[in-house]
Protein backbone atom coordinates (compact mmCIF):
# COMPACT_ATOMS: atom_id res chain seq x y z
CA UNK A 1 0.00 0.00 0.00
CA UNK A 2 2.81 2.40 0.98
CA UNK A 3 4.62 1.72 -2.29
CA UNK A 4 1.42 2.32 -4.23
CA UNK A 5 0.67 5.62 -2.49
CA UNK A 6 4.29 6.73 -2.90
CA UNK A 7 4.14 6.06 -6.63
CA UNK A 8 0.80 7.82 -7.00
CA UNK A 9 2.19 10.87 -5.21
CA UNK A 10 5.37 10.81 -7.31
CA UNK A 11 3.46 10.51 -10.57
CA UNK A 12 0.95 13.19 -9.55
CA UNK A 13 3.56 15.62 -8.26
CA UNK A 14 4.60 17.11 -11.63
CA UNK A 15 0.93 17.50 -12.57
CA UNK A 16 0.12 19.21 -9.25
CA UNK A 17 3.16 21.50 -9.52
CA UNK A 18 2.22 22.41 -13.10
CA UNK A 19 -1.39 23.07 -12.08
CA UNK A 20 -0.34 25.33 -9.17
CA UNK A 21 2.11 27.22 -11.42
CA UNK A 22 -0.56 27.74 -14.07
CA UNK A 23 -3.04 28.89 -11.40
CA UNK A 24 -0.47 31.36 -10.06
CA UNK A 25 0.38 32.71 -13.52
CA UNK A 26 -3.30 33.09 -14.44
CA UNK A 27 -4.10 35.00 -11.28
CA UNK A 28 -1.32 37.47 -12.02
CA UNK A 29 -2.85 38.43 -15.38
CA UNK A 30 -4.62 41.79 -15.02
CA UNK A 31 -8.34 41.46 -15.63
CA UNK A 32 -11.40 43.70 -15.47
CA UNK A 33 -12.87 41.94 -12.44
CA UNK A 34 -9.75 42.38 -10.29
CA UNK A 35 -9.41 45.96 -11.51
CA UNK A 36 -13.05 46.83 -10.77
CA UNK A 37 -12.88 45.27 -7.32
CA UNK A 38 -9.72 47.22 -6.60
CA UNK A 39 -11.30 50.43 -7.92
CA UNK A 40 -14.48 49.95 -5.89
CA UNK A 41 -12.47 49.10 -2.76
CA UNK A 42 -10.65 52.40 -3.07
CA UNK A 43 -13.12 54.76 -4.72
CA UNK A 44 -16.65 53.59 -4.06
CA UNK A 45 -17.19 56.49 -1.66
CA UNK A 46 -16.54 58.95 -4.53
CA UNK A 47 -18.76 57.32 -7.17
CA UNK A 48 -21.91 59.29 -8.01
CA UNK A 49 -23.21 57.30 -10.98
CA UNK A 50 -22.79 53.55 -11.16
CA UNK A 51 -23.32 51.53 -14.32
CA UNK A 52 -24.33 47.89 -13.88
CA UNK A 53 -25.28 45.15 -16.33
CA UNK A 54 -23.81 42.82 -18.93
CA UNK A 55 -21.70 43.19 -22.09
CA UNK A 56 -24.16 45.68 -23.61
CA UNK A 57 -23.25 48.26 -20.96
CA UNK A 58 -19.65 47.02 -20.50
CA UNK A 59 -18.83 47.84 -24.13
CA UNK A 60 -21.59 50.40 -24.70
CA UNK A 61 -21.20 52.91 -21.85
CA UNK A 62 -17.95 54.82 -21.53
CA UNK A 63 -17.96 56.87 -18.30
CA UNK A 64 -15.32 59.18 -19.82
CA UNK A 65 -18.17 60.82 -21.79
CA UNK A 66 -20.56 60.99 -18.87
CA UNK A 67 -20.79 63.03 -15.71
CA UNK A 68 -17.85 63.17 -13.33
CA UNK A 69 -17.47 60.29 -10.88
CA UNK A 70 -19.22 57.74 -13.06
CA UNK A 71 -17.94 54.19 -12.95
CA UNK A 72 -18.85 51.22 -15.11
CA UNK A 73 -18.96 48.06 -12.99
CA UNK A 74 -20.75 45.93 -15.56
CA UNK A 75 -19.18 42.81 -17.01
CA UNK A 76 -19.85 40.31 -19.78
CA UNK A 77 -22.93 38.20 -18.96
CA UNK A 78 -23.32 39.83 -15.54
CA UNK A 79 -26.86 38.99 -14.49
CA UNK A 80 -29.07 40.91 -12.05
CA UNK A 81 -28.01 38.63 -9.19
CA UNK A 82 -24.39 39.75 -9.53
CA UNK A 83 -25.40 43.39 -10.04
CA UNK A 84 -27.15 43.19 -6.69
CA UNK A 85 -24.23 41.36 -5.05
CA UNK A 86 -21.86 44.16 -6.11
CA UNK A 87 -24.24 46.75 -4.71
CA UNK A 88 -24.61 45.02 -1.36
CA UNK A 89 -20.88 44.34 -1.09
CA UNK A 90 -20.17 48.08 -1.16
CA UNK A 91 -23.43 49.32 0.36
CA UNK A 92 -21.68 51.04 3.27
CA UNK A 93 -19.10 52.67 1.01
CA UNK A 94 -21.41 54.30 -1.54
CA UNK A 95 -21.57 57.61 0.34
CA UNK A 96 -22.09 59.84 -2.73
CA UNK A 97 -23.95 57.49 -5.04
CA UNK A 98 -26.96 59.29 -6.54
CA UNK A 99 -27.75 57.29 -9.69
CA UNK A 100 -27.66 53.63 -10.72
CA UNK A 101 -28.00 52.77 -14.40
CA UNK A 102 -29.30 49.24 -14.75
CA UNK A 103 -29.76 47.77 -18.24
CA UNK A 104 -32.72 45.47 -18.82
CA UNK A 105 -32.24 43.92 -22.22
CA UNK A 106 -34.05 41.30 -24.27
CA UNK A 107 -32.55 38.40 -22.30
CA UNK A 108 -32.14 39.99 -18.83
CA UNK A 109 -35.33 38.78 -17.11
CA UNK A 110 -34.40 35.13 -17.84
CA UNK A 111 -30.65 35.44 -17.38
CA UNK A 112 -28.77 33.69 -14.58
CA UNK A 113 -25.01 33.68 -14.99
CA UNK A 114 -24.56 30.64 -12.75
CA UNK A 115 -27.01 28.54 -14.75
CA UNK A 116 -26.10 29.37 -18.35
CA UNK A 117 -23.31 28.41 -20.71
CA UNK A 118 -21.25 31.33 -19.38
CA UNK A 119 -21.27 29.93 -15.84
CA UNK A 120 -17.49 29.59 -15.92
CA UNK A 121 -17.42 33.37 -15.38
CA UNK A 122 -18.74 32.91 -11.83
CA UNK A 123 -15.14 32.23 -10.76
CA UNK A 124 -14.33 35.88 -11.50
CA UNK A 125 -16.76 37.02 -8.81
CA UNK A 126 -15.47 34.39 -6.40
CA UNK A 127 -11.75 34.95 -7.02
CA UNK A 128 -11.69 38.70 -7.56
CA UNK A 129 -14.78 40.03 -5.73
CA UNK A 130 -14.52 37.57 -2.84
CA UNK A 131 -18.05 36.25 -3.32
CA UNK A 132 -19.05 32.74 -2.25
CA UNK A 133 -19.90 29.73 -4.41
CA UNK A 134 -20.81 26.11 -3.71
CA UNK A 135 -18.84 24.88 -6.70
CA UNK A 136 -15.19 24.00 -6.11
CA UNK A 137 -14.29 24.93 -9.72
CA UNK A 138 -15.32 28.54 -9.07
CA UNK A 139 -12.39 28.92 -6.68
CA UNK A 140 -9.79 28.22 -9.33
CA UNK A 141 -8.80 29.69 -12.69
CA UNK A 142 -7.20 26.35 -13.63
CA UNK A 143 -10.31 24.29 -12.92
CA UNK A 144 -12.93 26.62 -14.33
CA UNK A 145 -11.62 27.02 -17.89
CA UNK A 146 -10.12 24.32 -20.10
CA UNK A 147 -6.35 24.04 -20.24
CA UNK A 148 -6.01 25.06 -23.89
CA UNK A 149 -7.72 28.41 -23.25
CA UNK A 150 -5.71 28.95 -20.08
CA UNK A 151 -2.42 28.29 -21.88
CA UNK A 152 -3.47 30.72 -24.61
CA UNK A 153 -4.18 33.35 -21.94
CA UNK A 154 -0.73 32.77 -20.40
CA UNK A 155 0.93 32.96 -23.83
CA UNK A 156 -1.01 36.12 -24.74
CA UNK A 157 -0.04 37.89 -21.55
CA UNK A 158 3.49 36.70 -20.81
CA UNK A 159 4.84 36.05 -24.32
CA UNK A 160 2.84 38.08 -26.83
CA UNK A 161 2.15 40.82 -24.29
CA UNK A 162 -1.61 41.15 -24.71
CA UNK A 163 -3.10 44.58 -24.13
CA UNK A 164 -5.44 45.48 -21.28
CA UNK A 165 -9.00 45.62 -22.61
CA UNK A 166 -10.71 47.97 -20.15
CA UNK A 167 -10.44 51.65 -19.38
CA UNK A 168 -9.67 53.29 -16.03
CA UNK A 169 -13.39 53.83 -15.52
CA UNK A 170 -14.37 50.22 -16.26
CA UNK A 171 -15.47 50.49 -19.91
CA UNK A 172 -14.61 47.53 -22.17
CA UNK A 173 -12.27 48.64 -24.96
CA UNK A 174 -12.01 45.38 -26.93
CA UNK A 175 -14.91 46.00 -29.32
CA UNK A 176 -13.16 48.33 -31.70
CA UNK A 177 -14.67 49.59 -34.97
CA UNK A 178 -11.59 48.39 -36.89
CA UNK A 179 -12.49 44.82 -35.96
CA UNK A 180 -16.28 45.01 -36.48
CA UNK A 181 -18.06 41.75 -37.23
CA UNK A 182 -20.67 40.85 -39.85
CA UNK A 183 -23.90 42.44 -38.64
CA UNK A 184 -26.19 40.02 -40.47
CA UNK A 185 -24.50 36.89 -39.15
CA UNK A 186 -24.07 38.17 -35.61
CA UNK A 187 -27.68 39.38 -35.63
CA UNK A 188 -28.86 35.84 -36.21
CA UNK A 189 -26.46 34.11 -33.81
CA UNK A 190 -26.90 36.62 -30.97
CA UNK A 191 -30.69 36.55 -31.30
CA UNK A 192 -30.63 32.77 -31.23
CA UNK A 193 -28.30 32.77 -28.20
CA UNK A 194 -30.48 35.22 -26.30
CA UNK A 195 -33.82 33.61 -27.10
CA UNK A 196 -35.19 31.32 -24.39
CA UNK A 197 -38.21 29.13 -23.96
CA UNK A 198 -39.71 31.60 -21.53
CA UNK A 199 -42.49 29.19 -20.61
CA UNK A 200 -40.16 26.44 -19.40
CA UNK A 201 -40.22 25.76 -15.68
CA UNK A 202 -36.56 26.75 -15.23
CA UNK A 203 -36.95 30.03 -17.10
CA UNK A 204 -40.14 30.92 -15.27
CA UNK A 205 -38.34 30.32 -11.96
CA UNK A 206 -35.39 32.48 -13.09
CA UNK A 207 -37.82 35.18 -14.20
CA UNK A 208 -39.51 35.22 -10.78
CA UNK A 209 -36.11 35.33 -9.02
CA UNK A 210 -34.87 38.16 -11.25
CA UNK A 211 -38.01 40.16 -10.62
CA UNK A 212 -37.44 39.74 -6.88
CA UNK A 213 -33.81 40.88 -7.33
CA UNK A 214 -35.01 43.91 -9.27
CA UNK A 215 -37.28 44.77 -6.35
CA UNK A 216 -34.36 44.32 -3.95
CA UNK A 217 -32.23 46.68 -6.05
CA UNK A 218 -35.05 49.23 -5.95
CA UNK A 219 -35.38 48.83 -2.16
CA UNK A 220 -31.64 49.35 -1.88
CA UNK A 221 -31.94 52.53 -3.96
CA UNK A 222 -34.86 53.82 -1.90
CA UNK A 223 -33.05 53.16 1.38
CA UNK A 224 -29.97 55.00 0.18
CA UNK A 225 -31.80 57.76 -1.67
CA UNK A 226 -30.43 56.68 -5.05
CA UNK A 227 -32.24 57.18 -8.37
CA UNK A 228 -32.72 53.93 -10.31
CA UNK A 229 -32.66 54.29 -14.09
CA UNK A 230 -33.52 51.26 -16.15
CA UNK A 231 -32.30 51.30 -19.73
CA UNK A 232 -32.55 49.06 -22.77
CA UNK A 233 -29.39 49.30 -24.86
CA UNK A 234 -29.26 50.14 -28.58
CA UNK A 235 -29.27 47.20 -30.99
CA UNK A 236 -28.97 46.87 -34.76
CA UNK A 237 -32.00 45.86 -36.82
CA UNK A 238 -30.46 42.51 -37.91
CA UNK A 239 -30.58 41.53 -34.25
CA UNK A 240 -34.06 42.87 -33.59
CA UNK A 241 -35.53 41.16 -36.67
CA UNK A 242 -34.46 37.75 -35.40
CA UNK A 243 -35.84 38.05 -31.87
CA UNK A 244 -38.83 36.18 -30.56
CA UNK A 245 -41.77 38.58 -30.43
CA UNK A 246 -43.22 36.73 -27.45
CA UNK A 247 -40.03 37.11 -25.40
CA UNK A 248 -39.52 40.70 -26.52
CA UNK A 249 -43.09 41.68 -25.63
CA UNK A 250 -42.77 39.96 -22.26
CA UNK A 251 -39.53 41.84 -21.58
CA UNK A 252 -41.13 45.22 -22.35
CA UNK A 253 -44.30 44.27 -20.44
CA UNK A 254 -42.14 43.42 -17.41
CA UNK A 255 -40.35 46.77 -17.53
CA UNK A 256 -43.50 48.84 -18.11
CA UNK A 257 -45.34 47.06 -15.28
CA UNK A 258 -42.38 47.61 -12.98
CA UNK A 259 -42.10 51.29 -13.87
CA UNK A 260 -45.89 51.74 -13.51
CA UNK A 261 -45.81 50.18 -10.06
CA UNK A 262 -42.81 52.20 -8.94
CA UNK A 263 -43.09 55.85 -9.91
CA UNK A 264 -39.59 56.59 -8.61
CA UNK A 265 -38.03 54.42 -11.33
CA UNK A 266 -37.17 55.90 -14.72
CA UNK A 267 -37.00 53.88 -17.91
CA UNK A 268 -35.02 54.96 -20.97
CA UNK A 269 -35.51 52.85 -24.06
CA UNK A 270 -32.75 52.97 -26.72
CA UNK A 271 -33.52 49.51 -28.09
CA UNK A 272 -34.45 50.69 -31.60
CA UNK A 273 -32.98 54.20 -31.41
CA UNK A 274 -32.45 55.37 -34.99
CA UNK A 275 -29.52 57.60 -33.99
CA UNK A 276 -27.37 54.46 -33.94
CA UNK A 277 -26.30 53.35 -37.37
CA UNK A 278 -24.14 50.58 -38.85
CA UNK A 279 -20.93 52.52 -38.02
CA UNK A 280 -21.77 52.48 -34.30
CA UNK A 281 -21.92 48.72 -33.92
CA UNK A 282 -19.18 46.18 -33.32
CA UNK A 283 -21.70 43.41 -33.87
CA UNK A 284 -25.48 43.38 -34.07
CA UNK A 285 -26.05 43.86 -30.33
CA UNK A 286 -22.85 45.57 -29.10
CA UNK A 287 -21.66 49.11 -29.73
CA UNK A 288 -18.10 49.86 -30.76
CA UNK A 289 -16.07 52.78 -29.38
CA UNK A 290 -17.84 55.26 -31.72
CA UNK A 291 -21.28 54.00 -30.70
CA UNK A 292 -20.23 53.85 -27.04
CA UNK A 293 -19.24 57.52 -27.11
CA UNK A 294 -22.50 58.49 -28.80
CA UNK A 295 -24.56 56.39 -26.39
CA UNK A 296 -22.71 57.59 -23.28
CA UNK A 297 -23.16 61.25 -24.22
CA UNK A 298 -26.85 60.66 -24.99
CA UNK A 299 -27.38 58.80 -21.75
CA UNK A 300 -25.53 61.48 -19.76
CA UNK A 301 -27.70 64.14 -21.35
CA UNK A 302 -30.88 62.25 -20.42
CA UNK A 303 -29.71 61.70 -16.84
CA UNK A 304 -28.76 65.35 -16.61
CA UNK A 305 -32.21 66.40 -17.85
CA UNK A 306 -33.85 64.08 -15.34
CA UNK A 307 -31.82 65.55 -12.51
CA UNK A 308 -32.93 69.04 -13.48
CA UNK A 309 -36.60 68.11 -13.30
Amino acid sequence: MKKFLKKIILISLPIIVAAISIEYLLRQIPNEYAYKRHYLDKNSNKIETLILGSSHSFFGINPAFMMENTFNSSNVSQSLKYDFKILTKYQNNFKNLTTIVLPIDYFSPWQDLAAGSENWRVKNYVLYYGMKSFKLNDYSEFLSIDLQKNLTRIKDHYITGGAISYSDLGWGTAYNSSKSLDLIKTGQTAAQRHTNDIFSKENQETYTKNLAILNSILNFCNQHNIKLILITSPTYNTYRENLSKIQLNKMFETIYNFVDEHKDVTYLNYFADTDFTEQDFYDADHLNEIGAEKFSRKLAHSIDSLNKL
Binding site: I15, L147, Q148
Partner: peptide, 16 residues
Protein backbone atom coordinates in the same frame (compact mmCIF):
# COMPACT_ATOMS: atom_id res chain seq x y z
CA UNK B 1 5.60 3.95 -19.86
CA UNK B 2 5.58 7.14 -17.80
CA UNK B 3 5.96 9.33 -20.87
CA UNK B 4 2.92 7.58 -22.31
CA UNK B 5 0.91 8.05 -19.10
CA UNK B 6 1.75 11.76 -19.03
CA UNK B 7 0.79 12.07 -22.69
CA UNK B 8 -2.60 10.54 -21.92
CA UNK B 9 -3.08 12.87 -18.94
CA UNK B 10 -2.06 15.83 -21.10
CA UNK B 11 -4.45 14.75 -23.85
CA UNK B 12 -7.24 14.56 -21.26
CA UNK B 13 -6.43 18.04 -19.95
CA UNK B 14 -5.72 19.68 -23.30
CA UNK B 15 -8.20 18.04 -25.62
CA UNK B 16 -11.18 17.42 -23.35
Amino acid sequence: RYVFYYMIVLAILLFA
